[in-house]
């Protein structure tokens, strides 16, 4: 069963324009990296500025909650979007993503 699927996969890979697929994946990768960079810079700047001006109104423990959720936002989204790229790379030939 595995051999059949391997053979089909190889046949699909032979029938497609590899350069076009590499370019398509590269464009998607730029989009992912750009979006993540924008997220980290803007979100980081806003959270830092607001906490540095308004933060003293709450205790250090509560400020820690802000930092925890900020890290969760950045961390989960980064891992999640990078997984999207991984899945694009893994299935692009088989599912003909860039036709």
């Amino acid at each position: 069963m595995n051999e059949i699927s391997q053979a089909t996969h190889t046949q699909v890979v032979h029938n497609i324009d590899k350069e076009k697929y590499a370019q398509g994946l590269q464009k998607d990768t730029y989009l992912i990296i750009g979006a993540l960079a924008l997220l980290v810079i803007i979100e980081g700047y806003v959270v830092y500025t607001i906490l540095s001006y308004a933060g003293p109104a709450v205790s250090a423990g509560i400020r820690g909650l802000y930092i925890l959720f900020f890290l969760l936002v950045i961390g989960i989204e980064t891992i999640g979007y990078w997984e999207v790229r991984k899945s694009l790379k893994q299935h692009m030939y088989e599912l003909k993503y860039y036709e």
């Binding site: 998607d28 989009l31 992912i32 979006a35 993540l36 924008l38 997220l39 803007i42 979100e43 936002v73 989204e77 999640g80 979007y81 999207v84 899945s87 694009l88 299935h91 692009m92 599912l95 993503y97």
Partner: peptide
């Protein structure tokens, strides 16, 4: 399988920003 994760996560980042 490409459009949904790529478009939706881009959307999520757009909204966060």
């Amino acid at each position: 399988s490409r459009a949904v994760p790529l478009g939706q996560q881009a959307g999520m980042i757009t909204l966060l920003v």
